[in-house]
Design a binder for these strands. Structure first.
Lengths: 153, 153
DNA sequence: CCATATTCAGAAAAATTTGCTGATAGTTCT
DNA sequence: AGAACTATCAGCAAATTTTTCTGAATATGG
């Protein structure tokens, strides 16, 4: 399997929306039997098209209603500094996403917290402890309009 | 079950990392048998702590290697304008996340695309077609440092 | 202290996954 | 065109997992 055919793509589209469907249910949608679908999913997993399967939880129910987005610029941009920064960011459990960006801002962070007060604490006790942060700009989510793990293809 | 006990929390922590574990495997980690774990998961699903189960796919393998982050400010901020904007954004399959923000920027968008050229096309043919956009600032991800669906609790 | 409700373990039934076999279709080479 | 090879698929059977049920143990509240 060098290239994916339309059946593979359909399977991936289905699984990224709902990973709890049985192979039989997927097979029915595709007018196939369970075994070819089963074999294809195994291949897609092995080849790395499917990275993993996860449960998506309700942030608010778990008392993490605040989402902050944080834009960080470093003071110095040597290779070593960037690597250290990345390493330290990964230690912070509050950080769900971190991207190294092109442009005037170096990093984007998405952070989930219990409250605005906890964000203050987070910045005070954790972020500000990281060396080499130049500028730190914070934004807060008023409302999640749309948030999916799905990608369109 | 009004409040979650430590066992429930542990189950949720496990499932958001790997939803493919069997109830038996989870039960072993918690030194329980399968049935109580099974029943707890069902309850967590029904009560909405678990929203859904999804497969996480490899963006690059599926030819969506470019992630753009886009900050949008509206020209007018009447209720109607905001609602329309939200509705139109949800139609764009390239947009994976959209947040209404507090502050000088109104919306954050995370967008997955085939190439920088496709971003140009996306802005030209889709984003710019949306009425009422005042300022549009684009950022591109150089490197994904960290990206998880997990939340810490 | 008793009644009620909740949680848990174990067993059994139902459903699903997984592995295997043979048939079919598509490809390549001669 | 035809033979050999490969990949894909359907169907079946075994192994595993999910799901349901029952009764015991524990906690809760009056």
């Amino acid at each position: 399997m060098e290239i994916l055919d339309e059946t593979d793509l359909k399977i991936l589209r289905i699984l990224q929306e709902n990973a709890k469907l049985t192979t039989k249910e997927i097979a029915d949608q595709l007018h196939l039997t369970a075994s070819p679908v089963y074999e294809r999913i195994r291949r897609l997993e092995k080849k790395g098209y499917i990275k993993n399967y996860v449960a998506i939880l309700d942030k608010k129910k778990l008392n993490r209603p605040v989402t902050a987005i944080c834009m960080v610029s470093l003071r110095y941009h040597n290779e070593g500094f960037i690597d250290t920064f990345e390493k330290q960011i990964k230690e912070l459990v509050e950080v769900q996403e971190c991207y190294h960006m092109a442009g005037k801002v170096d990093f984007f962070l998405k952070i989930h917290l219990e409250s605005l007060e906890m964000y203050h604490e987070f910045v005070r006790t954790k972020l500000s402890k990281i060396q080499n942060i130049g500028v730190l700009e914070s934004y807060f989510v008023l409302k999640e309009i749309y948030n999916t793990t799905t990608i369109a293809f």
